[in-house]
Design a protein around this nucleic acid. Sequence first.
DNA 1: CGCAGATTGGAGCACTGTTCCACTGTGCCA
DNA 2: TGGCACAGTGGAACAGTGCTCCAATCTGCG
Lengths: 233, 233
Amino acid sequence: MATRARRSRRRAEALSKERIVEAAVELLDAAGEAGLTFRALTERLATGPGAIYWHVANKDELLAAATDDVIAAALAVEPAKSPGSPQDGIRAVALGLFDAIGEHPWLATQLATQLSCSPWQSVTLRILEGIGRQVGALDVPEDSWFTTTSALMHYILGAAGQNTANTGVLGPDANRAEFLDAAAKAWKELDPGDYPFTRAVADQMREHDDREQFLAGIDLVLTGIITRHLPSA
Amino acid sequence: MATRARRSRRRAEALSKERIVEAAVELLDAAGEAGLTFRALTERLATGPGAIYWHVANKDELLAAATDDVIAAALAVEPAKSPGSPQDGIRAVALGLFDAIGEHPWLATQLATQLSCSPWQSVTLRILEGIGRQVGALDVPEDSWFTTTSALMHYILGAAGQNTANTGVLGPDANRAEFLDAAAKAWKELDPGDYPFTRAVADQMREHDDREQFLAGIDLVLTGIITRHLPSA
DNA sequence: CGCAGATTGGAGCACTGTTCCACTGTGCCA
DNA sequence: TGGCACAGTGGAACAGTGCTCCAATCTGCG
């Protein structure tokens, strides 16, 4: 199916899976998960549902393709620049994923469902491979590769997913400062008996920087890996 | 609203938000996210949509309440048993969350959306507080509390969310072995040029145990925390 | 020129979350 | 005791969803 490319259309850019996925990503970026509708898609592509369903099995496959597309693009950036230490390589891949999820907040939910429903496939593999190569360069003994890489992947996707709102949705920084301020204020008014810890870290929360904190977590895991799995140092 | 309790009904257990949330959790557990439908809810509770909407604003609030309920229950178990070292305390909380998400796979997606759309609220706070108290017991200097606890939380929720399918959906262990076997076989047939790392860890993936690997990751982060933030040792 | 088959897109289906509103049953007050 | 106000209920209906069906088109080939 879709044995295109050999035929030369004169119609304004004939339909194709790529064009559909591209439009889907734009809709998702513009209005979040709820913004991707077959109605909206047909309107934007100036066609009908039937045409789309000829190229794409269903909405799930479309979402998977969109996710795969964006993640692949995010992971494709780094191989060009890998000058520093292996640890810098890991930081680069991690930041690439962090920023991609920040720019496309819908990825957070999508990755969660995707990894839950069909784990160890397409997207997961891309990410595992991207992180794993850098882990290999760290001189971690080979029998710890999977455990180590999995831990890193879990942290990266977890942190990136949970920071989505702070980075992307709220728009410019002015709002962010206000938002954090309001949250910190609310934290301080929590019941001292139930939430002693949260009250104590309210100020740290207000002043934290997302990327900085993300990298601090990466360094924590890296330190753990080096301390546990590397004979030297 | 819902100033119940003072009036004594003889009708079979009059409607209440708790009863609705309880039914919602059962439906979610039985058939996943798609299983929670207002139609199904009305049928199970032998009532109509209007009655439900009197107690609950909309589906999002219902999902939030269900999430909160289950997470609170998972976190409420541990304070009884905190005999060991502070690190054991962290492991206990982490495993509590891990198992809860394993038993209720819909939590993976739900937590992702919840933390994205309304971060630093209800559920997030519960989890932060639960983990944070244990971190405090670790003698981590206070100005590192928030960063440290956040990193742990990100890893725990990330790992638990991504392991959902392996633990819960597939049912008994027999299937799991087959599933891992098939996945490992598929990994070994990937393009050696594109996926050298993934091919290399296929066997480790087949033989890994989810909980064990989860705890290994926790220990990695803990080692990082201790190495970086604790003057002693 | 005409045909086979790859594409298209509009009408329509089953289902969703949500709203509306006529109705019940209960507790309060005269 | 009687009537009332109203919290609480549940059935009917609505707009919008993903998806299917199928008559119509367009394309390259003989």
